[in-house]
Design a protein around this nucleic acid. Structure first.
Lengths: 129, 129
DNA sequence: GTTTGCCTTGACGCCGACGGCAAGGTCTAG
DNA sequence: CTAGACCTTGCCGTCGGCGTCAAGGCAAAC
């Protein structure tokens, strides 16, 4: 399988695949003419990468998952390093949710206050001769 | 008040203040020697900018608030444009919270599944003669 | 006079995951 | 033979809010 086919089957671009390669996540063989050649296993690897990226992982976070897959596991999640990353990310997401809730409260208050202020101003204008 | 003093009083850097200026958010006068000169009102403006940035606004989102302050209002939130931005941001934050909750569920499931899988493997290893 | 400490503009660096383009090699079909 | 559809490496651009020099001007203290 050449890079174009892999890109299409994995739902990404050739540019992205080369990028993953420069970051050590994908390791294609090379044919005689220098073309990158991928086997079916790489398809799973790339899909794993894409899925984790979509969830908000960075490439560095993803590396353990790829290593886990390469080690022969059906899932890239079952290795200790992967689990550690999952835990960390879960904590980060929790922190993010908390932060957004705080921001949300703040925005709600500011909005309510602003609207109340506007109505006060309107009343004043109406009551002014 | 020169730029250094304003930066310190507003809790930011001179670089940031010049940056805000290039983006039309702050408009200092100039003294004879070319130095930027700010009045007290600009301190409130810069504090408003900082507060909104901290909440996750972009400079473009902040512009209406600054205009509102300049229009003579005590708060930068009370003008229609500001309120519109507040509403939009609130919606964005809600969307962000939903997204993070989805991600959180996904991570929890993956983590639980991975740990269960590991324990199954351990049991198999123990039961294998 | 000179040191110190402000100030000025200008321009590059950063982070991350690529997009896009250039210049060229390779393979296949007509 | 040639067109066109692949592939290669390499390098700049993107987005945002600045940080960090660099090179120089202005002002007050010693």
């Amino acid at each position: 399988m050449l890079i174009g086919e892999l890109a299409e089957r994995a739902g990404t671009s050739t540019r992205a695949l080369r990028y993953y390669e420069t970051h050590g996540l994908v390791r294609p063989a090379r044919s005689a003419n220098g073309y990158r050649v991928y086997d079916e296993a790489e398809l799973h690897v790339v899909r794993e990468i894409r899925a984790l990226l979509a969830v908000g992982f960075g490439l560095d976070d993803i590396r353990p998952f790829v290593a886990c897959l390469r080690a022969g596991n059906t899932s890239g999640h079952v290795c200790p390093d992967s689990v550690a990353v999952l835990r960390r990310k879960l904590a980060e997401v929790d922190a993010g949710i908390d932060r957004l809730h705080t921001v949300r409260r703040e925005l709600r208050d500011q909005l309510a206050h602003a609207i109340a202020e506007r109505e006060r101003t309107c009343l004043r204008l109406r009551n002014t001769p």
